[in-house]
Design a protein around this nucleic acid. Structure first.
Lengths: 144, 144
DNA sequence: TATTGAGCTTCCAGTCACTGGAAGCCCTAT
DNA sequence: ATAGGGCTTCCAGTGACTGGAAGCTCAATA
């Protein structure tokens, strides 16, 4: 199976599949003409990766999850631990985004948004505490 | 004022301040010894940038916001439009994260997490539809 | 005065997970 | 014979920094 068909069947673009090979996530064989020759197993692996990535797992997490998947003597606790850690990270991101959302929507509501230059959004960003004063209550670091 | 003091007062690390100069967000003067010489205005600008970044605005948005801030003839509608677009993007991210969160927490609940190898999380990632089957309902692309 | 040591400088490389593009080979159909 | 689409590799760019090396400047101390 060539890369194009694999891409279609796994939902992973060719460029990304090559990248995954580069970093050792899949190891397709090669045909005589130098083309990658994928087996069913590879398609399966790539679809696994696609789903794990869609859940937001990092590439390194995906690598670990794949190896656990292939390890018959794994303990489900190992998998669960990774998932729980990731869930915690997701929750933190959500919390941070909601805090930004909160502040930003307040600011937007307070801005009349017309042809005049007066703007509480800019005033707040400039540090003027008389307007809404909520941004500085945010953690200093934005989402990475 | 040297970069260290500015970093402390603006909350932006020296490395980042130099980076912001590189990309033209601030233009500190120079002293005879080659050191950057910051004025109050620069500290103010950097604090502005810090707050805008904390709200999740991109660097390019920050650049625009700064120039609007300095433009006396701006229309607040321009600022509001940028903020609203950003709010929409935040909402989309939150929605996506919540969808991941939902699926992931279901999977975690269904995994006993002990010494045995059976694991619904892995089964689901592997595409087994008999277990929980929620991941594939996620959009194919993870958060950028 | 000589020497620390902190703080400043520039430049290069790495992060994460791809993605785009160029140059060129391979294969099938006309 | 040629055209095209698909495949190959390699290099560079994305966003927003961050780490590290090599080297200069400055203030304080021995």
């Amino acid at each position: 199976m060539n890369i194009g068909e694999v891409a279609e069947r796994s939902g992973i673009p060719p460029k990304t599949i090559r990248y995954y090979e580069d970093i050792g996530l899949v190891r397709p064989q090669r045909s005589g003409n130098g083309y990658r020759a994928f087996r069913e197993m590879d398609v399966h692996k790539l679809a696994f990766l696609g789903r794990a990535r869609a859940l937001g797992f990092s590439i390194e997490d995906c690598r670990t999850l794949l190896s656990l998947y292939e390890d018959e003597s794994r303990e489900s606790a190992q998998v669960k631990a990774i998932a729980e850690e990731h869930l915690t990270a997701i929750d933190e991101k959500i919390t941070q985004l909601q805090s930004m959302r909160e502040t930003l929507s307040h600011l937007i509501k307070s801005c009349h948004g017309d042809h005049r230059p007066d703007c509480p959004i800019l005033s707040d960003l400039a540090g003027d505490p008389t307007v809404v004063r909520t941004v500085s209550s945010l953690a200093n670091k934005a989402a990475k």
